[in-house]
Design a protein around this nucleic acid. Structure first.
Lengths: 190, 190
DNA sequence: GTAACTTACTTCAAATTTTGAAGTAAAATT
DNA sequence: AATTTTACTTCAAAATTTGAAGTAAGTTAC
């Protein structure tokens, strides 16, 4: 309808909004150069965004259930993601912000909870006393280790052969590109 | 360091697309004796999850700013995603749930807001009066059209050539796979 | 035909997560 | 020394998500 006509950029015959789990847009095997890519089903950034939203939701609930299985009550999926983002390095709050594109007050809030729970240590930097240095405590490392350990099963399922590896890599790169494009657009306009 | 040992990962080659490995602590990059500098990295599902989380955040704030630009005050990014998920078909709440993996009460809540705002119509199905049939009103279609229109610019940036298209496709497919694996795992255990 | 069960959705209250404005203190700049 | 900037924190409010409980329509089993 109207939307279809306004669809710019990518020529598409896509019934994006009428698919069910079985028939996702597939690229047709043969394309005729990129002058007139007709009959090609193309993924728009909205479809990707919706997919990303769904997948994110899925992961969050998976993470929640892993945490429950581990008997962790004081760390939600969002906080767990922060722990995983910290990883095994010591960093400042600002670096953590960059890592997750969080908003400052948000991270502060999580860090407070995590510090209260004994999962991280916060030490003012020697050089710059404004800057809080963050790192996992043993308890925090243990939790991350448990999560990663549980995660191994998923990695084995997701990456069975070279094709899988390539695709995961491409997905990662492409998401990164989306991140940059969307991020820059938000800041400087497209 | 313990984490590293527990890391079950996926070996993958990154391309040059210009991200800083330092941003991603879970990726260990080790240069091998290739002729061209090639990083062999390990992409775990946690890294993907973190990337997805970030990208999702980015997109939400982009969407928020698009909505602001359009002067829309009564629709947030989450509700806009629901509108986009509805698309131009008439469907039931249940179908919408499937589309976004929402939780029932959540969608109900959004639909109420959207109906109040005049963006959707809700009609009880003739066959099954329990089932609410949902579709966009003209106002809702207009908003979607505007959003898609604005989105055209991103599509043009994101999908410049066939390579881009291929990668977007692969990313989409791979995310779908993640969705399935994570979703099944959550329901039936891995 | 009706009692019990299931499905489809809604409501509400609470929990979680995100946002933004205002604050503090240290560092850098003037 | 005064001002500005940086790095972060706090707080309160808003937005989003969750889950338990409810309603009403449809289905099934007697």
């Amino acid at each position: 309808m109207i939307q279809k006509l306004l669809h710019e950029g990518v020529e598409v015959e896509t019934s994006i909004d009428g698919y069910d789990a079985a028939d996702f847009p597939e690229i047709t095997a043969e394309k005729q150069g990129h002058r007139h890519p007709v009959h090609t089903v193309v993924v728009t950034h909205f479809e990707l965004a919706r997919m990303i939203e769904r997948v994110n939701r899925r992961f969050a609930s998976l993470l929640r259930s892993e945490l429950t299985k581990l008997g962790i009550e004081d760390v939600g999926p969002a906080q767990a993601m922060v722990l995983l983002a910290i990883g095994d390095v010591e960093l400042s709050v600002g670096e953590l912000l960059d890592r997750g594109h969080y908003i400052g007050s948000n991270i502060s809030y999580y860090l407070k909870q995590l510090a209260d729970g004994g999962y991280i240590d916060r030490v003012a930097s020697q050089r710059d006393k404004r800057s809080a240095r963050i790192r996992l405590t043993d308890k925090g490392e243990q939790l991350c280790a448990n999560l990663r350990n549980a995660g191994g099963a998923y990695n084995r399922v997701l990456a069975r052969d070279d094709d899988d590896l390539r695709n995961l890599e491409i997905a990662f790169q492409t998401l990164h590109r989306l991140e940059l494009v969307w991020g820059n657009a938000a800041r400087y306009g497209i």
